[in-house]
Deep mutational scan, measured.
Amino acid sequence: IRVFLPNKQRTVVNVRNGMSLHDCLMKALKVRGLQPECCAVFRLLHEHKGKKARLDWNTDAASLIGEELQV
């Protein structure tokens, strides 16, 4: 999953079965001084340019493999 972060940063996270978005993104956020409780995560909708859909931090990350997200 490719993730666009604040301050023009980005990362790619690996996903294993059973992991939530929170689990996958925790380290990437922590390294940058961010906390999931203070952030929202969105899936970028490529079929609708510029649109995005808000996701819950408990979403199964395996269902988002190959997607691009924005925090």
Rank of each mutant, 00 (worst) to 15 (best):
N14P: 13
V15L: 01
K8T: 04
D56V: 01
L69W: 06
V3N: 05
L44G: 08
V12G: 02
L64G: 02
R16W: 08
D56N: 10
M26Q: 14
K49E: 15
I65S: 07
G33E: 05
V12M: 10
K27G: 15
K49C: 12
Q35K: 14
K52P: 11
C39E: 00
F42P: 08
M26Y: 15
R43E: 00
C38L: 11
L69Y: 03
R10N: 11
V15M: 01
N14I: 08
L29D: 06
C24W: 03
E67Q: 13
A28I: 07
V31Y: 07
R2F: 08
M19R: 04
R10Q: 15
C38I: 05
C24R: 12
F4V: 14
H48S: 13
G66Y: 01
F4I: 10
H22A: 14
Q70F: 14
V3H: 04
M19V: 07
R16S: 14
K49D: 15
H48I: 08
L34V: 04
R10M: 13
K30P: 02
K27I: 12
C38N: 15
S20C: 03
N17E: 14
K49R: 11
P36V: 08
L34Y: 08
M19N: 02
K51A: 12
A40T: 12
F4P: 01
D60K: 03
R2L: 07
V13K: 04
M19F: 07
A28W: 00
I1N: 05
K8E: 12
H48T: 11
T11M: 13
G50T: 07
R16P: 07
R43W: 03
L21I: 09
S63Y: 03
Q35M: 13
A28V: 14
G66P: 03
G18V: 00
E68V: 12
N7V: 01
A40I: 08
H22S: 13
C39I: 00
S20A: 03
Q9P: 03
T59M: 14
W57C: 06
T11C: 10
H46D: 12
S20G: 04
D23I: 04
H46I: 09
S20N: 10
R10H: 14
E68R: 06
V12R: 05
A28S: 10
V13W: 00
R2H: 07
Q70E: 15
N7F: 04
D23N: 12
F42A: 05
G33V: 04
K27H: 15
L34K: 01
K49A: 13
R54K: 11
L21E: 06
P6I: 07
E37I: 04
L5S: 00
V3I: 15
R10I: 12
H48W: 06
D23Q: 11
C39P: 00
E67G: 04
D23C: 04
V3S: 00
D23R: 04
L5H: 02
N58E: 10
L45G: 15
V3D: 03
F4C: 13
V3F: 06
L44R: 10
Q70Y: 13
V3E: 00
C38Y: 09
V3A: 00
L29E: 00
L5D: 09
L64S: 04
T11L: 14
I65H: 04
L25P: 07
E68S: 12
L44E: 08
L5P: 00
E68F: 04
V71G: 04
L25C: 04
M19E: 11
H22R: 15
D56C: 03
K49P: 12
H48N: 12
P36R: 07
R16V: 13
R16G: 07
A40Q: 15
L29Y: 02
D56H: 08
V13P: 00
A62K: 08
K51N: 10
P36D: 02
N7E: 08
V31F: 10
N7R: 05
R43V: 06
G50R: 09
L44I: 10
C39Y: 04
F4H: 08
F42I: 03
G33K: 11
V41N: 06
K49N: 12
G33H: 04
W57S: 05
T11P: 00
I65V: 13
M19G: 05
G18Q: 06
V12Y: 09
K52L: 14
A53V: 15
L5V: 01
L34F: 09
L64R: 01
T59I: 10
W57A: 05
M26S: 15
V71C: 03
A62D: 06
Q35L: 10
E67P: 01
A40K: 12
V13D: 00
A61G: 05
C38E: 15
L25K: 03
Q9F: 08
L21D: 00
G18K: 10
P6M: 06
N17D: 15
Q35R: 13
Q9D: 13
K30W: 09
P36N: 03
L5G: 00
H48E: 14
A53P: 07
R54N: 05
D56P: 11
G50W: 09
M26L: 14
K49F: 08
L69D: 05
R54L: 12
G33F: 09
R54Y: 11
L25A: 01
R16F: 04
G18C: 06
G66R: 04
H22K: 15
Q35D: 15
L45T: 13
A53E: 15
R54H: 10
G33W: 02
T11D: 02
V15S: 01
L55K: 05
L55T: 00
H48K: 15
A40E: 15
L44Y: 07
K30R: 12
N7A: 04
V71T: 04
R54I: 09
D60L: 02
A61T: 02
Q70V: 14
L25R: 01
D23M: 05
R43S: 05
R10S: 14
A53H: 09
W57M: 04
H48Y: 06
A62P: 03
G50V: 09
H22W: 12
E68T: 14
N17P: 15
L34N: 01
R16D: 09
E67T: 10
H46R: 15
K51P: 11
L55V: 12
L25M: 07
V15Q: 00
K8Q: 11
P36A: 10
A28E: 15
C24Y: 05
R43T: 05
K49Y: 08
A53I: 10
V13R: 01
N17S: 13
K52C: 14
V41W: 01
R2K: 13
R2Y: 09
A62Y: 11
T59A: 10
P6V: 01
D56R: 05
N14M: 11
L25Q: 01
C24T: 13
V15H: 06
L64W: 01
N58W: 04
V71Y: 03
K52V: 13
H22D: 02
E67I: 05
L45E: 13
P36C: 05
L21R: 02
E37Q: 05
L25G: 01
L44V: 14
N58A: 10
Q9M: 06
S20F: 05
A61S: 08
V41G: 00
Q35E: 13
V31Q: 10
G66N: 06
Q9G: 08
H22N: 06
L45R: 13
G50F: 06
K52N: 13
Q9C: 05
T11Q: 06
H22C: 07
N14T: 13
E68D: 10
G50E: 11
A61K: 03
K27M: 10
M19I: 08
L69C: 04
A61V: 07
K8W: 01
L34W: 13
G18P: 02
N58C: 07
E68G: 03
L29N: 03
V12A: 07
Q35V: 12
N17M: 11
E67S: 12
Q35T: 14
K51W: 09
V15E: 03
S63D: 10
N17C: 14
A53C: 10
K27P: 15
L64Q: 05
E67H: 14
L21Q: 03
G33A: 04
G50C: 13
R16C: 10
L55A: 03
A62W: 09
L69R: 04
I65T: 04
D56T: 07
D60P: 12
K27S: 13
I1W: 00
S20V: 04
W57E: 06
M26C: 14
I65F: 02
R43G: 07
G66V: 02
L44M: 14
M26I: 13
R10C: 15
P6T: 00
R43D: 02
P6A: 00
L25T: 02
C38D: 15
A28F: 02
V41H: 02
V15N: 04
L64Y: 07
G33Q: 01
K52W: 13
A40M: 12
V3C: 05
L55P: 00
L29C: 01
A53S: 11
F4Y: 12
V15T: 03
N7H: 11
K8S: 11
K30Q: 15
V13H: 01
K49H: 08
H48L: 10
L21A: 00
E68H: 08
T59D: 09
R10T: 14
T59R: 03
A40L: 08
N14E: 14
L44T: 14
R10E: 15
L34H: 02
V12P: 04
V31E: 13
Q70A: 06
I65M: 09
I65D: 10
N58L: 07
L64V: 09
G33L: 01
L29V: 01
T11N: 03
L5R: 08
S63C: 10
N7Y: 07
R2D: 05
L69Q: 03
V71D: 05
R54S: 13
V71L: 11
I1E: 02
K52R: 11
V15A: 08
V31S: 14
